[in-house]
Simulated scan of single mutants.
Amino acid sequence: MRPGRDGYGRTVDRDRLLDFEDAPVPSGASPWVEGFGPGTDLTIAEHDPRWAAAAVRLCRRIGDALAGVAVSVEHVGSTSVPGLPAKPIIDVSVVVPDADAESSYVPALEGEGLVLAVREPWWQGHRMFRHAGPRANVHVFGPDAAEPERMRIFRDWLRTHPDDRERYAVAKRAAAAGGGHMLEYNARKQQVLREILVRAITQAG
């Protein structure tokens, strides 16, 4: 399959976007920074238009803090899709030139009140920060990561395809009803998410 372009002009290989085989977690490794673990609040709220405004402000702060470093800063996840119920936690995707070079972005993000909660360099260089006001998860990836583009494609697809948006909403509510923690919630809705995402990637221009 020929590569396309993402929202920032970077070349994107669709075969890579469709490859969901993750690298194995190194033996004995944990993605969680000491003191952190998966959340247990699985409350799903009706969509709140204020989420978008809060995300714009947060993305602007992150962009300013990482001026000259961040390749992209985007509001993604369910709170970025009008009409989609969501946990009231904003997701932000940040791409940097080298996610392993934490000194180039961690201090700046900490200066904005973000706290590093996840470090899993074996998965696309991923780091995740938590923010309290507004509640947010800020995901940092390296330049070759497929996940930020998947997030963008999924967001844009749900914004323009109400049937899939409703299907995903049903899956989210069912997953939340199962209780447990965030990783279990994500696993329960993964099949529906993947089916929609594959369709969106395949048809994306």
Rank of each mutant, 00 (worst) to 15 (best):
D6M: 07
G9A: 11
D13M: 06
R16N: 01
D19E: 08
P24N: 11
S27G: 12
S27T: 14
W32A: 05
G35D: 06
T40C: 10
D41L: 07
T43C: 01
A45M: 08
E46W: 04
D48E: 11
P49K: 08
P49E: 10
R50M: 02
R57Q: 15
L58G: 11
I62D: 04
L66R: 07
A70Y: 02
V76G: 06
G77N: 11
S80E: 11
P85C: 12
K87D: 10
S93N: 13
P97H: 14
D100H: 10
A101M: 04
E102Y: 10
S104C: 12
V106P: 01
G111Q: 05
E112D: 03
A117L: 10
R119Q: 10
Q124E: 15
G125V: 06
H126Q: 12
M128F: 02
F129G: 13
F129Q: 11
A132N: 04
A132V: 05
G133I: 01
G142D: 03
P143V: 04
D144V: 02
D144T: 14
P148N: 02
R152H: 11
R155Q: 13
R155L: 00
W157P: 12
L158N: 09
D164I: 09
E166C: 00
V170Q: 15
K172F: 09
A175T: 10
A175I: 09
G178F: 13
G179H: 06
G180K: 11
M182F: 15
M182G: 00
M182Y: 15
L183E: 15
K189A: 10
Q191P: 00
V192S: 00
V192N: 01
V192T: 15
I196S: 03
L197Y: 01
T202K: 08
T202R: 15
